[in-house]
């Protein structure tokens, strides 16, 4: 486990979910889910299809309102915030970044413009209208481009990138947002083994000064992340612990292999 030293608020969790339930037309997507992420922690979340992983992210990021339960986020300055009171944009601006399962970059803009849009600050309409790109900001984008190895493609339309490159671009956008907490949905999908390992390395670097929640199916990738693992099933937590301990858990084996 690579537990970085919490920058602030010792032991108070950065993300705290308690008794969260969501149902769609009678189907319980989340069922009394409780989860606790410490500041600076990296957490991997696994679970079969329909376990509620994406719905959980929807709840945290304000896309879906939970029927019951609390979702608290420990903001650097504002302290405990009830995330269910904010919409997606507000949650994002509070410092929760999200990467989607399907790589979603803005295909009709260039790689550079994608990063420019993601760059922290200037979210207001008027600010956007009067926005000028300072050298400092340009430099930052340049740095991110190097980090995600797309500096040669800066002026290409995002639509022309390969699947893996899009994933990287999206990770780059996530970093540009400078969030405190990153929610990452299946980052390794469509990547080569080499890219997958590079991604894992990148996340480990990020974990030094961010909190990360990573949803993934690729067990090698999770092993490479080397962090605490939470197993979701039918909308609630089935098991929690190191990857090794979880893999030995009989219930987890049953769920994955079928009873």
């Amino acid at each position: 486990m690579s537990l970085a030293i919490p920058k602030h608020l010792e032991n108070a969790p950065i993300l705290y979910l308690d008794g969260v339930s969501v149902s769609f037309d009678g189907f319980k997507a989340l069922n009394n889910l409780s989860l606790c992420i410490e500041p600076g922690e990296m957490r991997a979340i696994i679970g079969p299809n329909g376990a509620g992983k994406t719905t959980m992210m929807d709840v945290i990021t304000g896309k879906t309102r939970p029927d019951t339960g609390t979702v608290l986020f420990n903001h650097k300055e504002l302290n405990e915030l009830d995330l269910t009171q904010y919409d997606e944009a507000e949650v994002a601006n509070l410092g929760v970044g999200r990467k989607f399962q399907k790589p979603s970059v803005i295909e009709t803009l260039t790689v550079f413009e994608n990063l420019e849009l993601a760059q922290k600050g200037g979210r207001g309409v008027w600010q956007a209208l009067m926005h000028t790109l300072t050298n400092e900001k340009k430099q930052k984008i340049q740095n991110t481009l190097e980090l995600i190895a797309l500096q040669d493609k800066a002026q290409d339309l995002a639509a022309n990138l390969s699947h893996g490159q899009k994933q990287w671009l999206e990770i780059g956008m996530l970093i540009s947002q400078e969030p405190e907490l990153l929610l990452i949905d299946e980052p390794a999908a469509g990547m080569t083994d080499e890219e997958t390992m590079k991604t894992a390395e990148l996340f480990k670097t990020l974990a030094k000064n961010h909190s990360l929640v990573v949803v993934e199916h690729d067990m090698d990738f999770i092993a490479a992340l080397d962090c605490k693992v939470t197993v979701l099933n039918e909308g609630s937590v089935l098991a929690e612990g190191s990857l090794a301990s979880v893999q030995k858990n009989q219930q987890v084996i049953d769920v994955y292999l079928g009873r």
Binding site: A89, A92, L109
Partner: peptide, 16 residues
């Protein structure tokens, strides 16, 4: 443009 092509994504980038 990003609202036109990926409205949800734009929201998650923090744009109202």
């Amino acid at each position: 443009v990003s609202i036109r092509d990926a409205e949800m994504r734009t929201r998650f980038l923090g744009y109202k």
